[in-house]
Write a protein that binds this DNA or RNA. Structure first.
Lengths: 215, 215
DNA sequence: CGTCTTATTGAGTTTAATCAAAGGGTGTGG
DNA sequence: CCACACCCTTTGATTAAACTCAATAAGACG
């Protein structure tokens, strides 16, 4: 969920908070008194199940909103994977703004629709795509978050393998093998931990099969 | 998306339309001039991809709303799998109601949040559960849509195997094998096409692993 | 420099997909 | 009413993909 800047003056008094790596923004079950715009850094939303399985629902980058679009309590946990600055927006200020400006509500509904559509695409990615297609789609998405998908430039991949695996519904071994394969195919480079380079954008797009989930 | 009855007088002038089996309610790309409440029957929402794969996004039963929560155009196709009566709600009447009653907007946002949460649960079902867990979860959901999950009563399963497969991200063969296995285990009965009977609710809940996706 | 964590690589197993064929209703026409 | 055809479903055999278990390698950090 992005681009809330049109909210304008309604959120002038928001405060910015800083989170240390791996500290929580909120927990499942906490009441939704506020939501959060990532200013700098990366957050991850996830659910942990009784059997220990973890599903990462989304990564949030600067400009993204987390915690919005829940009911009265959060439906999952959210923490940050590196030092992160977060703008805290009181729920009440949004509700106030909605009453003052009804057209805002329509916009928010559209945003919610966008979120639903995004989840649908992600579902399809999870159940219809092969491991390598998922990784390729994921890398393209990571790339488009920090610049246009550029060949040759080092792009940041701030999350560890197990996070990628838990986001894509794979194991870390499969993630690692797929990345290695793509490196062998000269589609990407892996210069260091936490970074990757696109060497052949056309092949990467082909691997991702483009139209699903690369949005 | 359910329980829109609180909309009350805003939708008094809605008309009811009847759709013959497999006729479309709307297509992807159509403009969202209206949305639809299923009065009687069953609808399915789905996307078809360039490679021919089809993903059924949701089944809609009486009381459910379809077509709500898109942007200005529908994001997928929707048709009915049996003779279905549908209440047509003009989008304009909802927007009007929102302006007149701001608290409605909050309720709609909550509904959207609900939809997002539902999609998240479905994602998890699709990428974390085995075939038999998915089928068990699906049967429980089907059961809870028509009554409390009751042992011994014939429950309707109106969609064909290929629809179940495309909803759960499986093949029809796997769906069929899983159902057969559950029948062999005396968990369910399959008295006829389009129906099933729960014989052992406890085992069925265990197979579904309950907490994920049975909501 | 050594330890600890994270990532990679390898071997074997499991699950579901694929390919292929047979069975079972339903409906139509003789 | 029966026979046939069609569609949907079930069952079987094989294959392929990803998971599991296990070991090694590479960074990060004190």
């Amino acid at each position: 969920m992005r681009q809330m800047s049109w909210m304008g003056s309604a959120i002038d008094r928001d405060s910015v908070r800083t989170f240390a790596p791996f500290s929580p923004i909120f927990h499942e079950g906490d009441s939704t008194a506020e939501f959060f715009e990532i200013v700098q850094g990366v957050a991850r939303s996830y659910k942990i199940f009784p059997d220990g399985r973890r599903q990462i629902i989304a990564f949030a980058f600067p400009g993204d909103i987390v915690g919005f679009g829940h009911g009265s309590t959060y439906r999952f946990d959210c923490d940050v994977i590196e030092k992160t600055h977060v703008k805290v927006i009181p729920r009440s200020s949004l509700l106030l703004a909605m009453r003052n400006r009804p057209e805002l509500s329509e916009k928010l509904l559209d945003m919610a629709a966008e979120a639903v559509a995004g989840m649908q695409d992600h579902s399809i990615l999870l159940c219809r795509k092969s491991a390598i297609e998922r990784i390729a789609s994921f890398l393209l998405r990571m790339a488009s978050r920090q610049s246009a998908p550029v060949v040759g430039k080092r792009l940041s991949l701030p999350m560890c393998r197990v996070d990628i695996a838990d986001f894509l519904g794979l194991t870390i071994e499969t993630v690692s093998r797929s990345l290695t394969k793509m490196r062998t195919m000269r589609v990407i480079d892996l210069p260091d931990r936490g970074g990757f380079v696109i060497r052949d954008l056309v092949k990467l797009l082909l691997l991702a099969e483009s139209e699903i989930g690369s949005a």
